[in-house]
């Protein structure tokens, strides 16, 4: 595609503007947001629990092994509750 130098300049200008917006948002706005107590508390809570909120697959969570082990342990202690337990009916029912 043949572009005039003016068109090329406009394209680079658009890219520069977008990059400037990224620098402002990621460099100034987001760090300020992070200092808000509610956001800090949320990030701390997620870190402490081994949660990756941006996880694509279960294996991305640091805490998955612990959560799964806890449920497996519960199932080991009460196998019937997860595989065959139906609510017991009293003889009068």
């Amino acid at each position: 595609m043949n572009l005039t130098s003016r068109e090329r300049g406009a394209r680079w200008q658009r890219l520069s503007l977008a990059l400037a917006a990224i620098v402002v948002i990621w460099g100034l706005v987001l760090p300020r947001l992070e200092r808000m107590p509610t956001v800090q508390a949320r990030i701390k809570h997620l870190n402490e629990n081994g949660i990756d909120p941006a996880a694509l697959f279960y294996s991305d969570h640091e805490g998955m092994g612990r959560w799964e082990a806890s449920i497996r342990e519960t199932q080991r202690q009460h196998p019937e509750a997860f595989w065959s337990q139906l609510p017991k009916r009293s003889p009068t029912e």
Partner: peptide, 19 residues
């Protein structure tokens, strides 16, 4: 999303997070 599920579960509590 897998990540959002854990984040939302943890807002209810540890049992909800695990399940």
């Amino acid at each position: 999303a897998t990540g959002a599920v854990a984040a939302a579960g943890s807002m209810l509590g540890e049992e909800a997070l695990q399940v």
